[in-house]
């Protein structure tokens, strides 16, 4: 009988630790690159009843982005605003250390702000095979002809809650609750191995 364990890209890696950086699966040029990026400042904005349009407008003017109250990602050089529900916006910034405070000053009584800096781990997925990888765990249609750059979705992938958006033609960004990092990274490695996957992360070994 064939020894299947030799084909397991995760063989020998403790299931509760983040797999180490490196190449997994098919040899040759990796078709999928997975990296965990530090998006240091994240806050959730929930518009109070009746203020969704006003909040979207204020956020758009403040960050120089086109923001509507829908499931989409508005991306700028320093900040991204993702719609996760009616009147709910996840704001990500590279440059605002006190993002929640800035948003409170901006939105006043129109919204409730919650700091989420440490809530998520951010996965950057690059490569043309990313939709094929994600299709193994997703319940939604991520076909590149359907899920276009700027589209966003809050859903489950591999039974794990995910907010994802397509950054550009061959780049996708996923926010996953931080405590799922090891488990979700294993899903990515196992599902991307057939295409050849390169994992680059600075948090290997974390449980």
């Amino acid at each position: 009988m064939a020894d299947h364990s030799s084909h397991d890209p995760l063989a020998g890696i403790p299931f509760d630790l983040v797999p180490p950086s490196g190449a997994y699966g098919a040899a040759g040029e990796a078709s999928v690159t997975v990296s965990t990026v530090e998006t240091p400042f994240i806050a959730l904005v929930v518009a109070r009843n009746g203020f969704a349009a006003s909040v979207a407008g204020r956020l758009g003017r403040a960050f120089g982005l086109e923001i509507a109250d829908r499931a989409g990602a508005a991306m700028g050089a320093a900040s991204t605003v993702v719609g996760t529900g009616p009147g709910r916006f996840l704001v990500l910034s590279k440059t605002e250390p006190d993002l929640a405070g800035t948003l409170r000053a901006l939105l006043g009584a129109e919204a409730a702000i919650t700091e989420q800096d440490d809530a998520f781990v951010t996965f950057d997925l690059a490569g043309d095979k990313v939709p094929d990888l994600l299709a193994k765990g997703a319940l939604i249609d991520l076909d590149p002809r359907v899920f276009l750059p700027g589209h966003a979705a809050t859903t489950v992938i591999a039974h794990v809650g995910v907010t994802l958006w397509r950054v550009h033609e061959s780049g996708w960004r996923l926010l996953v609750a931080r405590s799922y990092e090891a488990s979700f990274t294993r899903f990515l490695v196992a599902s991307g191995a057939e295409f050849g996957l390169r994992l680059e992360n600075g948090t290997a070994g974390r449980g």
């Binding site: 829908r70 499931a71 529900g85 319940l139 939604i140 979705a153 809050t154 859903t155 489950v156």
Partner: peptide, 11 residues
């Protein structure tokens, strides 16, 4: 109405 058509397992 917000997310589009979704699998019943999400609900």
């Amino acid at each position: 109405p917000y997310c589009g058509e979704r699998d019943a397992h999400e609900f």
